[in-house]
Design a protein around this nucleic acid. Structure first.
Lengths: 298, 298
DNA sequence: TAGGTTTGATAAGCAGATCTTATGATGAAC
DNA sequence: GTTCATCATAAGATCTGCTTATCAAACCTA
């Protein structure tokens, strides 16, 4: 027996304002008896009278007066909650946690985040950069909202959308610039420098060359594309990098870059998120922004 | 469309806490479908999903997370309002504005307020000291909550309760101490000093002597009982004062005090308040405290 | 003082909200 | 593949809250 409702609080406030049951009821869009009853019920559930009904005047009791500012406060807070909802309906806002793999992050993010901030200034973007398996775990656990990775991921719990495809290019020492571009088979015989175990890009490169990842490849792994390119410049071998990384990584290094002939090696970049996430619409919108950012890079 | 209810907010909080529809429903004392529906309705009325329902886990969306502290805040405020009501039900609290006539106030109030503060420490007491007609006006207008006056007041809009009766005593110069106490008829022939026009005590004294107030009585009116007693001490006449005033007013004055024989003049002191006031119970309680305070004075 | 007016309370009936139980659907676990 | 867990949906019962109609009290006017 103490069941206040927001409706009662609203009627209470209206009656305080109008000091007249009929007028307050009109203002609240209900009939006078309905308002009378709700006020009465409110008084009964509180166990304390709120108004003193005298002839031709409705006066707040002392207790009612004490209550008034608190009730106003509550109604204001509720209004703010509703405002928040209205805002959240239309704009993308709040925190958004995006995972990105290391072979994409440094090249795509600067442009992507620029576009994103421009279109959704209220968005609070968090970036998590790590390898695909960990991103998958964190996504499943709700630690991130979405991830930008190489597809396919093939997790039944996730939705996948492709954003763009991207070729791999060959990076050789500058001295090799005039040589013919080796075939995949040729590559197996060359000193191919790759990222260390765990990077999906490593596996994609190996698969292009039909090399089994399990084979011992001592001394040929680097921890970042930057390292690999520097090793190539030092003449230790050749490597593949995604096209997106080309301009950043090879700009100031003594290496030459070559396209492969068809069928070129490539990877598919896309976004993934939990199928259960209610943000599907926003993620599609986000994918568009990634695409625009990526296109703007060539 | 946008009709939140407190019930929904409570269910929302329960679901946040339990992260499980069934358990949250149990905790809320309703069935699981009822809770599911209310949460769904809340999401629809806000237009934004609050929870992400995945297999075996219920996870707050970003928006739900933003909402949670505000909802908690609202529910806490509502709880406080209910607490206030519970408190107000039992104890007398809040502001209480009491009117008192000048021939009572200085003698009764110190003791009365002492008792009152002791029994109801949270009570915020305001005292208004003025003549009866003004108290009546202010009471009718709601500027004070109750008044302690001489009865009867006979206002149909007011409730009256008698608290105690009080004799009037005769104050004469010290030199008259051994003389016989004059009768009411004798008093008419003596120089009777009285309060100025407007004090009910003046009229009560006059009525005892069968003197018509309208008669010219130049130079014989004072504005307070203190003044009157001092005038008596100076040999300018005699006066009547209420017994309650005796010890305070005659303690250090060169006057003698005498009781009248039966039928003694007296007045009836009581409390009045608007019949419409919801504080009737409290006023009766208050009257008891006044009575105790008055008894403690002899 | 009598009759009309204002205003809040009460009554009866209806509509919609909210709950319950029963059942369905989906994904996880064995 | 079967069973279990869990949330959604459906159908029906009950309660709540609203409406209109009416009453009662008190004020106002004449």
């Amino acid at each position: 027996m103490m069941n206040l409702t927001l409706k009662q609080l609203r009627y209470f406030e209206a009656l305080i304002h109008h000091k007249h049951f009929g007028h307050a009821a009109d203002a609240s869009g209900i009939s006078q008896p309905a308002l009378s009853m709700q006020i009465k019920e409110m008084e009964e559930s509180l166990g304390v009278p709120l108004f003193e009904r005298a002839a031709r005047q409705v006066r707040l009791t002392r207790f009612g007066e004490d209550l008034a500012p608190r009730v106003r406060d509550i109604l204001r807070s509720v209004g703010e909650v509703e405002d928040m909802a209205r805002l959240a309906q239309h704009t993308m806002s709040g925190r958004l946690r995006i995972g990105v793999i290391p072979t994409i992050a440094p090249y795509l993010l600067p442009s992507f985040i620029g576009h994103l901030k421009q279109e959704h200034p209220t968005l609070d973007v968090h970036i998590r950069e790590t390898l695909t398996p960990r991103l998958i775990t964190e996504l499943a656990e709700g630690k991130i909202d979405t991830a930008i990775v190489a597809l396919p991921v093939s997790e039944p719990a996730f939705e996948e959308v492709t954003i763009f495809e991207e070729d791999f290019v060959l990076v050789r020492p500058e001295s090799d610039a005039m040589r013919p571009v080796p075939s995949a088979a040729d590559l197996q015989l060359m000193k191919l420098l790759l990222l260390e175990e765990g990077h999906c890009f490593r596996d994609q490169a190996l698969s292009f060359c039909n090399i089994r990842s399990a084979l011992p490849r001592d001394g040929l792994d680097g921890s970042s594309l930057t390292t690999l390119v520097q090793l190539v410049a030092a003449g230790l071998g050749v490597t593949l990098i995604p096209q997106m990384a080309m301009s950043v990584e090879t700009h100031s290094a003594a290496v030459s870059v070559a396209q492969f002939p068809e069928p070129r090696p490539k990877r598919k970049i896309g976004m993934i998120w939990r199928k259960t996430s209610p943000l599907t619409d926003q993620f599609h919108q986000l994918a568009r922004i990634v695409e625009i950012a990526a296109n703007g890079m060539h």
